[in-house]
Every structure is written in C-alpha cells, then in structure tokens.
Amino acid sequence: MPRCVSRRTATAARVHRPDRHVQTLFIVADAGDRDDPEMRDEQRLGRAAFLGVTAVGLSSLWWGRSAWDAGSGLIPSGVGAVLPQPTSGWRIYTVAPTMPRIDPAAYRLRVDGLVRRPVSLTLADLRTLPAAAQVSDFHCVTGWSVEDVRWTGVRLRDVLAGASPLPSAGALSFVSAERPYVDSLTLDQALLPDVMLAWAMDGRPLARPHGAPLRLVVPSMYGYKSVKWVTRIVVTREPVVGYWEERGYDTDAWIGRSNGA
C-alpha cells in the first residue's frame, strides 16, 4: 500500500542527517556516480515490474482460460450468483435500447411467407408438438463459449412442417421482437436435427435476457444466428441479410469454418 513518510520521520531525517538534502541533490544530478554507496544500490525495478507483468499477461493468452475456469470452479455457486461478473459464462448481447418484455400468454409465433398454411402459434400450441431436449455448446463469435447448455423446446423442422413450405421455399428469416434484429438460415440449415426453438434453458423457463419466451438455437453456428425473442418466421426464396451480417459477419456462420476461418 503506497504511503507517505510521516511528518515526524521526515523531520527526524533532516535533523539527524543535515547533509542529506545536499547529498541527494548531488546523487540525482549525477546518476553515474559510482562512489556513493547508495548509487551502487540502484535497481531498475520499474522496468522489471513492467516486463514481468507484461510477460505473465501475454503468456496468459495461452493458459489464462484454463486457469480462470479452474479458479471459478472454486467459487461457490451462491457467491457466483451475486457477483456482477458473468460467472455463468453467458454474456448478454442486445442491440436495441431496451430488451423486449413479452407476456407469455399474449405471445404468438407467426410462420408465413412461402407457405401453404400461414400459422400463428401460442406457446400452448407449440407444446402440443413433439417435445425436444438436447445438450449443446453455445459459441459466440466474439470468443466466449458456454458448454453443455440444456435446451428444452421443439425442433424447428416440426414447427415448419405445420405450415407446409411451398416448393419455391429456400430460406427462413427469423424476426426478433428486438428491432431491428433479424437473421436467416437456408432451408437445409434450418432442417438440421439440432436446430430448435427453445422455451427453457438448463431446466428453467428461458429468462428475459436469453430471449424469453422463445429463442432459436443453432448449435453448429455462432450465437448471432440463435435469434432471441423470435416472434415471426418468414419463409423466403433466398436468405435475407441478417443484422450482424450487415455489419460484417458471415451469412453461413459455421463454427470454426466461418468469419475468417
């Protein structure tokens, strides 16, 4: 802890060593003086501290993550819950000034566009479809990941089947209640067996920051594809350019095979 020389000691130093001030004046003025015993005792601790912290910091680019994970495993979950830092691994990304707040009772998922039967589904309607549950990893394109997330909901293909896409259908866009967020998948991507519409995460109803009451889950792609607060699915011929795609991210967001890979 940095502290200051107390008045008493500073005065004592001057009393007992009247030549002190003059002497040190000389030392600072001529740092090359090797005769003074104090001068030989100079150490370049400033650069040592700088280089040491820098070296540890830069090397942690390779070991920091595993050390952090090991360390946060030691924090009791009760303590972790009240810490402001994201110990769960999740970071909440939103693009609009406020997150959508959706009344589950009033919620409707519209599926329209190039379909034979446009539908408007309540959450109760969705629950009549075959239930789906899976454990998958969530990877964000900005570099963080959450492993082993337990999702509960329905397969997207089952929802889609109810609306019967026309033969000309080639893609889907997912419109979020968080304007102007939208993203898209090709029909082939959307029919992958692990693509879900989820209403629960890790055994609890989806929380508002995670897209309550319903979000898309596309485990093989970066998180910006997993649209939160989905309220409408539009079947189109071609994929529309999504929110983050307009800002430079790839349309086909395969993990490890897109965005520069």
Binding site: S60, G64, G143, W144, G248
Partner: peptide, 18 residues
C-alpha cells in the same frame, strides 16, 4: 478475432477482463 479466427486465442477475453 471477430474477423479472422486465427487471431482467436483461448485466453484473450480472460486477459482483457483480469
């Protein structure tokens, strides 16, 4: 790292946070 996965290192976020 958002533009090119070759720059995505394991500990970058942790280093920035710590």
């Amino acid at each position: 790292g958002e533009r090119d996965t070759r720059f995505r290192l394991d500990g970058t976020i942790v280093l920035h946070d710590v």
